[in-house]
Amino acid sequence: MKPAPALAEGFPDLSGMRVAREPHWFRWFSAALIVLVLAAIARAFANGQIEWSYVSRFLTVKVILEGIVNTMVMAVLAMALGIVLGIVVAIMRLSPNPVLKTVAAGYTWLFRGTPLILQLLLWFNLALVFPTIGIPGLWSARAVDVMTPFLAALLGLGINQGAYTSEVMRAGMLSVDIGQYEAAQAIGMGRLRALRRIVLPQAMRVVIPPLGNEFIGMVKATSLASVIQYPELLHNAENIYYANSRVIELLIVAGLWYLLVVSILTPLQMLLERRFARGTLRLAR
């Protein structure tokens, strides 16, 4: 065997030298600038015409706390409805049956194509179109008795959410390698069982980050239900300032609570992501 050839001249050995740390002058400068701006804003707010005593006084008052509970209850229930609908509609959309496909596409088009607040108002005022609702022969009731603010909010928020969730779920299901579906079929599984046991669980990993995001959006979307008299946080805060004219102070109270809820939900979503990544070594960042 020939010995290795001698190395060429002119290329020094740098292995003893370390790379110096860059001073990043611009980063320091911009950070200082931002701190200054924030300090100026904080000072402006402190000196502004806000009666902070009203903020602290109403922050934990019973009506506000009830509002938060109602907000969260509605967010959870509407999201649950939205997820169930989303899965069903996504499966319909991916079905070989053209009728199911069209119905699914139509549902998505209709409920993504109209503003949420419009949908809430329509549900709440359903009795203008259908004074009585029911199943002929079995049961009937006045629409206004059935369509309470709670139900109208739940239907409006949930069905609207379903349209968005179905797209997320569909993308998630399509992201699962088709080989998985074929392997399931090869051991005799039908389409629905393969979806349920093999495809959907894998789709969940892709779907959790956007769904977590949607849930956080839902918590805030519940504030739209204030116009149909659902007593959530914003509605109750408004009632207080209608009585005492402290508009900004009460809006700050409501805003702080929304911020708090979202700040708690964000790390919870990360925990959920981790659980669904079980079985794979890579975690989506």
């Binding site: 390698d177 080989g179 998985q180 392997a183 051991i187 005799g188 894998q202």
Partner: peptide
Amino acid sequence: RLKTGMVFQRFNLFPHK
């Protein structure tokens, strides 16, 4: 399909199991 068993080029094991 139950009468046949298939082994795929890319294995296609269920990763969550």
